[in-house]
Design a binder for these strands. Structure first.
Lengths: 119, 119
DNA sequence: AGATTGATAAACCAAAAGGTTGATTAGGAA
DNA sequence: TTCCTAATCAACCTTTTGGTTTATCAATCT
């Protein structure tokens, strides 16, 4: 129960960084080594290594061994856990849309305010 | 291009906290005031107010006004943006699974590298 | 007006995140 | 052995996060 919360903590946190999301994007095209992953970025190789450790601790990636290299692989299962969390609220959101629709059809707005924003 | 990255930064970061995820869960059942949202937690009302500001800056929630109260509402659109990002890799992952299947059937120990794509 | 309620602002603090540089491990090749 | 390459570890620094407490704003009600 609470361990799932910690797993979501680390997974969402891991994705809250453009470098790490970019690493995920790269890995979706196949495994890569730390040096390969570090190449597009201006930060040091050590910094990228830390980012990979963050992703690994969140279990979004796994690692294997090939001589001195430690190739990084995407772990698809964890991404599913995130969509699963978000999907919990998808049905509820659709219900809210239906409620809003009902309100808009049956009633006029009360006070002047910025009721809805679109983006 | 980069503004979407910043939007994903703030949205993923906002969800990387159990209190804020719990607030999202609560709001999926309808709008609530800060006092109502703060009630289940042991932290101060000010701390919850800060959490809501984080969610608001990530545009995961919006606020309206009702006398002294400022009810918080869920903003479904932003959650969709997160699933959209994750879904980018769902198809790729399925392709990887198919590649793996092909490798297992042909039993050739070689890396199935894909052509390059950008995101 | 004054009091009350809901929510925020400001100042501050400890811990964590993200980065650096320098040293070190581990495996393979000369 | 010695050297080279891939990657990590360790120490350190700066900025951000998440929390507190005190004080303040804003709307409503006597």
């Amino acid at each position: 129960m609470n361990s799932e919360s910690a797993a979501l903590d680390s997974a969402f946190m891991a994705l809250a960084d453009p470098v790490r999301r970019s690493i995920i994007a790269r890995l979706s095209r196949g495994p890569a080594t730390v040096n390969e992953l570090a190449e597009p970025f201006e930060i040091s190789k050590q910094a990228v290594s830390k980012h990979i450790q963050v992703l690994e601790q969140a279990e979004l990636v796994t690692r294997s061994r090939d001589a001195q290299r430690r190739p990084v692989h995407l772990n698809p299962a964890r991404l599913e856990a995130l969509t699963a969390w978000i999907d919990r609220y998808r049905l509820v959101r659709e219900a809210q849309f239906r409620s809003l629709d009902a309100v808009l059809r049956s009633n006029t707005a009360d006070s002047g305010d910025q009721s809805s924003k679109e983006s």
